[in-house]
Design a protein around this nucleic acid. Sequence first.
DNA 1: GAGTTTGAAACT
DNA 2: CAGTTTCAAACTC
Length: 642
Amino acid sequence: MEKSEGGESSEASVSAAVDTASQHVAVDFPAKKLARQLDFTVFGGQSPAAVTAVTEQIQPLAMTSGPQIVPVKLTPLPRPQLQPQQHMVLMPMKQTAAPPTHPSIRPPFHLVQFASIFWLMCEAIHDVRDDIHVPLLATLKPESPRARPRQSASELKDGTPKKQKQCNCKHSRCLKLYCECFASGIYCDGCNCNNCHNNVENEPARREAVEATLERNPHAFRPKIASSPHGARDNTEETGDGLVLAKHNKGCHCKKSGCLKKYCECFQANILCSENCKCMDCKNFEGSEERQALFHGDHANNMAYLQQAANAAITGAIGSSGYGSPPVNKKRKGQELFFGLANKDPVHRQGQLQQGNHMKSSVLPSLSSIPGPCVGNAATVGPSKFTYRSLLADLIQPQDLKELCSVLVVYSGEAAKMLADEKDASQKQAEGQTEASLASSTQERVNPKDSGTEKDMLDCSSSGDQGEKICVEESSLDGADVSKRRPMSPGTLALMCDESDTMFAASVASPNDLATLSCNTSSQLPHGQGMTETYAEQERIVLTKFRDCLNRLITLGEIKETKCSKMARGADSIDQKDMIGNGFTTTETRNQHDSFNNGVSKSALPQPRTTQLFSAVVATANNNALPKVHRPDENGDVNPKI
DNA sequence: GAGTTTGAAACT
DNA sequence: CAGTTTCAAACTC
């Protein structure tokens, strides 16, 4: 996706942008990204249908959804992550294994989808990960294989995944699992193989080979690295060593490599050996001195290794769960810290002792339940075991997304409130003195404290036809407090519906109120076109703010990209202060996150550029008022006046 | 780049 | 299922 063009109508551009994003989700983006970004189900049952369902769920927002609210709970995805492709070539029949969570319903815009799409868009901005394997796509569109088995370290010299690695098969005709291309479900393309049959011209033979392979092993094309049986994507979070907490489905059988060379599939995938492994003399366990020595060793070599690790992390041949191990120094601080060596050591010592039985099953389940990156131990100070990550990866944290959504909910609520007030005012004017009693009763619903602000907002409002705004018939809402509430769009209510915590309740309503709102959503719906206008306005606002955030994100990403490029060129001359000023450093990134999380209190302080990503939105939300400043944004677009 | 090592896949 | 062979990637020189 590209930056939106300046000067566009904000409403149109936002709608178009989101619409486009949705389309990308469904069509344009490589399937690999879909699988990775929009996987809301647990391991073992991904289906294209599920992705489609998600895509469909997005549409209502872009198109101003109708008034249907279905409080669907999907597994929250704090940070959309790489998920192994479950099935591939010639296995479409098995892809239907996992039906959508709620196949018969089409819930409106959902917070989780919002966050996921947000991430999708963030990554699409830079198109940074085009090398996640996509066997499914290769199956569906064999003429355009896009998946990537893995990349060599040399292909990652600049830290950016490059094109597909070529296999060098000589005797397998590229029709055996020996061939990485074949194993990844893609055609050979530009490979150095001999007598290759893994191509369109030999599709019959290829198909036959696939069938034969599946006959031998129905799971042959499944990724070798998987989340835990629990299906929690948490399991792919990294440990303090930047190690991904996934495990090899079959386990390795290494004998001589100590599982510390890339011969070892676990090591190559940047994961620890698990109870599935039958390796000998395994040193690939948490706390292993050899392993740590490897990570803490010579830095120059380390970088090469780290890039190999990145390579492994995104390798399609092995699986994709390895993705997403950030540098340790970028560990999120508020999360988890569950994994310490204290917990792990015994387990891995056991692994060291041996093989075939290490890491008993009691361990991984616990790992899988850990929601987030884990800090290892003091020893984790060093191991900057980088895997490939988006330049934007640390700019936005899961919590940010959550808060952003919350803020947008607040915006939406405020918009509805404002519109209702508008209606109040116009009604009052129209009905005149004879209708005074009715008008006053309506006005009583408005918090006097807010009147001034709302008046200002009205003055700034760009929604022209105020006369058509209608007053909300709050009588449809139950409960004593309901009378003070303003309508929220289906999308907003859906957001709130899924937001079980009370994170933003203080700004909008009490938890109970939220529940009431949610439960009465349907009863709000038949209020006529005035309500539709309100919904439209709410969604316009939400989308506009979301677009603003994305625009900032684009800018930040470009800045980081520029800096990274300079560094990659050995530009030691990069001005450290400049980097800091642009939020390039880890510290600043961290600060940004803190600032965002802490809301207005910090956003009011001088901030590095990155901290401004969402701060305006957050600050406004915390003030429980909509922004009044009407100014062009960074790319020339005009922000809504609200 | 050639040769060796390694472990997964394939085969028996 | 275990042992052996084949294979290609990883590694070494």
